[in-house]
Design a protein around this nucleic acid. Sequence first.
DNA 1: TTATATAAACCGACCGGTCGGTCGGTATGA
DNA 2: TCATACCGACCGACCGGTCGGTTTATATAA
Lengths: 203, 203
Amino acid sequence: MTNQERRDSTRTRILASARDRFTSAGFDATSVADICAASGVSKGAFYHHFPSKQAVFVALLERWIAELDESVQSAAARNEPVPRRLENLAGLVGQVSELGSGQIPMFLEFWRQASKDPDVWRLTIDPYRRFREAFAALIQEGIEEGSLRPVDPDAAALVLVSTGVGLVLQGALNPAEPRLPDAGGQAVRMLLGGLEKEASHES
Amino acid sequence: MTNQERRDSTRTRILASARDRFTSAGFDATSVADICAASGVSKGAFYHHFPSKQAVFVALLERWIAELDESVQSAAARNEPVPRRLENLAGLVGQVSELGSGQIPMFLEFWRQASKDPDVWRLTIDPYRRFREAFAALIQEGIEEGSLRPVDPDAAALVLVSTGVGLVLQGALNPAEPRLPDAGGQAVRMLLGGLEKEASHES
DNA sequence: TTATATAAACCGACCGGTCGGTCGGTATGA
DNA sequence: TCATACCGACCGACCGGTCGGTTTATATAA
C-alpha cells in the first residue's frame, strides 16, 4: 500500500468509527480510545491525523454540511414551477431522516455543540442562513411568476426551514413514526394549500 | 429554620444552580462539584437529596414538562373558533423562546439525553405525544365546526408541532433573530391561509 | 537492481487531572 | 434521644493528549 493509500484509509476509518460512536453515544461519552478501538487504529495514529477529538467532530460536520448543501442545490435548481420545486425540497426531509436514521442523533450533537463552541456555531449557522436565503429566493421567484401569494419571503422561508428541522428532529426522537417518510411532502402541501376552509384570498 | 424549610431551600437551590449550569455548559460538562459550588451546598448534601446527577436532570425535565403542559392546556381550552385557538397556541412558541431564552439550550440537552437514556426518552416522548394528540383533536374539532378543510388531523398535528419545535430550536441557535417573537403566529397564519395563489379548493 | 537515507505513518505505555459517587463523622431540629 | 440534614476528604475509574521509539514507504545513489 502506498503512503497516500494508507493515509486515506486510516483517516476514513477514523472518521467512520467516530461518526458511529458519536451517533450512538454522543460526543462527550465517546472516548478517543473508543474510536481507536472501533477503527483498529492506535492512539498515536489518531493524533497523527487529527490534532484533537474536536477536530474529528468538525471534519464530520463539514462533510455533512457539504452533502446537504449539494442536495439542496440540486433539488432547488430544477426548471419547474416553484410549488413543484418546494415539494422536491420537501422530499429531502424524508431523505435526511432515512439516509442512515442513525445519523440524526449526530445532527442533534452538532446543534448542541454549536451552542457552546464558537467555531462549530459558525459552521452550523452559516449553511443554515444559506438555506433560508435559498428558500427566500425561491419564494420570491414564486411570487414573481405568480404561483405564490405575495407573502414576506423571509418569514415564509423561516417557517419552511423550521418545519423541516422540526420534522427531522421528530424523526430523531421517534424513528418508528410511520408518517415520517411523507411528512415533508404533507407539510409543504399544507403550507401551499392552507388549512382554512374559506379561501379568504383571491388572485 | 424548620427541617422542612431547610430541605426545601436546599433542594430548590440545587435545582436552580443545576439548571443554570446545565444550560450554560451542558449536562456532561457540568460536574457535581460545580453545582455544589454554585448553590453553596456540600457534596454530601447534594447526594443526600438526589441519588445521582442524572436524577437532578430528570427532576428538572419533569418540572419543565409540567409547566409546558399547563401552558398548552390553558391556551387550547379557550372557547373560541379553532383557528383563533391555534393562533393562541402559536404564541407559546414566542413565550417559550423568551421565557428565559437561556432555558433553550437546556431544551436541546433534554432532547439529546432522550436519544440515549430510556428513562429520559419516555419522559420526553410522552408529553410530545400528548401535544400531538391535543393538536389533532383541536384540528378535528375545527373540521367538524367547519372552519378547517377536511385534512388528516394527525398529519396536520405532526406538521404543526414540528414547526413549533423547529422555531424554538431556531431560537436556541440564533437568539438574535428579530423575526422570532412573531414567527409562531406567522407560521400558523401561513398554514391556515396557504401560500399558493390560486385557491384550488372550495367548500 | 540493490543499498542507503529520510520522512511519513504508526505504536502503546504513560501522565496530569477530573469526575461521579462514598463514607465516617458532625450539627441541628423534632 | 433520635432522625434528618449536612460536611468534605477521599477513592477508583477514566480520559484527552504526549512522547520516545518502531515500522514502512519512497527518494536517491551506487
